[in-house]
Nucleic acid binder design. Structure first.
Length: 297
DNA sequence: GCGTCCAGGTCTACC
DNA sequence: GGTAGACCTGGACGC
């Protein structure tokens, strides 16, 4: 019998808005069943335990985690619930953000849909590697690189689905592996270097979650990682709860031109000006404004 | 079939 | 601090 865990969802939580918040639900080990609104994931449970495959869904104000584990002790149960709350950003508060968006008629849907939570991975390391996989390539290639990492370096659960690899697992592989097997091209050097530094404790991305640094200084620290530039750092800032940066990429720019600039290309300064009134929420404001049609469910 | 472009950018060298 | 050119991959497109 599968072991099912659950917890109460807060009043302002929307499972659909969270899993459709950006492309992360399409990246392994996430696997979204959009017909039934169920999100598959494979939880890493540490060195001594097999990873656990699970399906996450919401029903009547509760979040359920239906695991495929035959047994599940209290410690593992607590870890899976903690990870799920982190992934779904259950404890984040958006009322201050909604006060901004409710002032704009065309953004009132955001509070109505309870949107704002950007799906993330259980670890910042996983989000960091995935973000580097989004740079300078098509979304199809991003998905391919992430799938290759999971398939070739992930740990299998009892039912065979694999986790995202740890930094230690990634650090064991040479640059050639990333180039030839992961197909990550010039990013291969970045992955090998990053994994080694994280595995050795020289870099600890998990510290970014509760960093006391300002967004500006944290962005600077993130950019010290090879392969992380302005877009990647600002995207990572959003994933650790700081929305100061717009994280402009070619997709976001093109959407802005279509929606707010008569399909005319403009300088980034104009885009920044458009969202300056949202202050420290501007990164979330532009993202939701541009991805509005994703929330037509 | 082949060449070119470019996509959820970044790095380095140079000014 | 700003800019030009190089950088992997793979799908789309034109010829």
């Amino acid at each position: 019998m599968p072991k099912i865990l659950s917890f109460d969802a807060p009043e302002n939580f929307s499972f659909k808005a969270t899993v459709y918040s950006h492309g992360w639900s399409q990246l392994a080990p996430f696997d979204l069943d959009s017909e039934n609104w169920k999100l598959k994931f494979v939880f890493d449970t540490g060195e001594d335990e097999k990873p656990i495959s699970a399906v996450i869904y919401e029903n009547e104000g509760k979040v359920f985690i239906e695991t495929k584990a035959k047994t599940l002790n209290k410690k593992l149960s607590e870890k899976i619930i903690t990870d799920t709350k982190h992934i779904l950003r259950i404890d984040e508060e958006f009322s201050a953000f909604y006060k901004h968006t409710d002032k704009q008629k065309h953004l009132r849907w955001i509070a109505e849909k309870k949107a704002g939570r950007l799906l993330r991975s259980p670890t910042v390391f996983e989000d960091l590697v995935k973000t580097i996989c989004t740079t300078n390539c098509s979304w199809a290639l991003t998905k391919k690189m992430v799938s290759n990492l999971v398939e070739k370096l992930g740990e299998p659960s009892e039912t065979g689905e694999k986790t995202f690899p740890t930094a230690i697992a990634m650090a064991k592989m040479p640059v050639e592996f990333y180039r030839d097997e992961i197909r990550s091209g010039y990013r291969s050097q970045y992955f090998a270097e990053l994994a080694e530094k994280v595995a050795l404790g020289i870099v600890n991305p998990e510290n970014w979650l509760d960093s006391e640094l300002s967004a500006k200084d944290l962005k600077k620290e993130m950019k010290s990682i090879k392969g992380v530039g302005d877009y990647a750092a600002e995207n990572l800032l959003k994933l650790v709860g700081k929305y100061d940066g717009l994280a402009l990429d070619s997709w976001l720019r093109s959407q802005f031109y279509k929606k707010h600039n008569g399909e005319e290309v403009c300088e980034d300064k104009l885009i920044e000006k458009h969202y300056e009134n949202y202050g420290s929420w501007r990164g979330l404001a532009i993202w939701l404004d541009m991805s509005e049609r994703w929330h037509e469910y």
